[in-house]
C-alpha cells in the first residue's frame, strides 16, 4: 500500500558533493554496529521502530560491501511493514524475502520455505524483521530448529514512548514476553525511544536510561542506541556508552503530509 519507488529515494539521497548515486547513498555501519553473527533478528513492540532499524542496518551493511538479505516476517498486520520499501531495497541491490503476488498485502501466517535454508546457510548477512509484541515474535518459535545455536543475534527494540513500555517494568515485561513467545534468548537491546517528528534529545536520553536499567536487570547488554542523524550529532559519546546508529527515515508516509511525519528530531 505504501509504495516507495527507487526513483524517489535516489533523488533524496545524493552522494556527498552532490553527485547522484545509482542507488541511495548510505554510510557504511560503524565497527561497533556491525552484526556479530550472520543472522540478525529484529524484534520489539509495535511502534518500537523495528522496521526502520532493520532497513537502516541493511542499507549500512550493503554500503559496507556485505551481501544482505532482508526477511519481512511481520505476519500480524498488513500496514507499515518493511516489505513496503521493496522498490527502495531493490534500487540498493538488497534482496527482500516476503510473499509475492496478492499475498504480499496479506496478514496471513505465511512463513516462506526459503527462510529456513537462509537461516541454516546465510551466505552473507540475513536481517529478519519480525512483527510487533509477543504476538509478532511467536513466529520465531516455528523456526526454532533452523536457528544455528550461537549463530544469531536477537535484538529487542524498545521505545519508551509507547503505552505499555513507558517504564522499566513494562520494558522488562516486553523483553521477557518476546523471549518466551519466540523461544530465543535476546542477545541485545536497542534503545529507540521516539515520538516520530516530535522526538527531542532529552526523550532519547531518558529512554536510553530506562533501557540500560532494563538490560542490567535482565543481564542483556544495550547493543546500540538508535536515533535520527540530526539528534545523533548532538549526543555526547561518553554519555551514551554504546554504539549509536544514525537512523534515516525510509518508511515515510509522505501522503499524510503536513504534521506527519516531520523531519526527524526537529527541536
Amino acid at each position: 500500500m505504501i509504495e516507495f519507488d527507487g526513483e524517489q529515494a535516489r533523488v533524496e539521497h545524493t552522494q556527498p558533493g552532490g553527485g547522484k548515486a545509482d542507488h541511495p547513498w548510505w554510510p557504511p555501519l560503524g565497527e561497533g554496529l556491525r552484526p556479530r553473527q550472520p543472522v540478525v533478528v529484529i524484534a520489539g513492540g509495535f511502534g518500537s521502530g523495528k522496521s526502520e532499524l532493520a532497513l537502516n542496518l541493511c542499507m549500512g551493511l550493503q554500503a559496507g560491501g556485505e551481501r544482505v538479505r532482508l526477511v519481512d516476517l511481520d505476519i500480524v498486520k498488513p500496514f507499515f511493514r518493511s516489505r513496503q520499501a521493496r522498490g527502495f531495497l531493490a534500487a540498493a541491490g538488497i534482496g527482500l524475502v516476503a510473499p509475492e503476488g496478492e499475498l504480499f498485502h496479506s496478514d496471513l501466517p505465511i512463513v516462506l520455505p526459503e527462510i529456513r535454508s537462509l537461516l541454516r546457510q546465510p551466505d552473507g548477512v540475513v536481517v529478519i524483521d519480525v512483527g510487533g509484541d509477543t504476538a509478532g515474535s511467536r513466529v520465531l518459535s516455528s523456526l526454532g530448529d533452523a536457528f544455528v545455536s550461537g549463530g544469531y543475534e536477537l535484538l529487542v527494540v524498545l521505545n519508551t514512548s509507547r503505552p505499555f513500555t513507558r517504564d522499566v517494568r513494562g520494558l522488562v515485561e516486553m523483553v521477557r514476553g518476546i523471549a518466551a513467545a519466540g523461544g530465543l534468548v535476546p542477545t541485545g537491546l536497542v534503545a529507540n525511544t521516539h515520538l516520530l517528528g516530535e522526538t527531542r534529545l532529552e526523550l532519547v536520553l531518558e529512554g536510553l536510561g530506562a533501557v540500560r536499567e532494563t538490560g542490567a536487570l535482565l543481564g542483556i547488554p544495550v547493543r546500540m542506541l538508535a536515533c535520527s542523524e540530526k539528534l545523533a550529532r548532538r549526543l555526547q559519546p561518553q554519555a551514551v556508552g554504546c554504539p549509536v546508529l544514525e537512523l534515516r527515515r525510509v518508511l515515510r508516509e509522505e501522503r499524510l503530509g503536513g504534521e506527519w511525519p516531520l523531519a526527524d528530531g526537529e527541536d
Binding site: G47, P163, D167, V168, V172, H194, L196, L217
Partner: peptide
C-alpha cells in the same frame, strides 16, 4: 525484581499510539 516507582508513567506526556 524490585522496581523503583513509575514517575515516568505518571508524568503527563505524549505517547506514540
Amino acid at each position: 525484581m524490585i522496581f523503583s516507582g513509575s514517575e515516568a508513567a505518571a508524568k503527563p506526556r505524549k505517547l506514540l499510539m
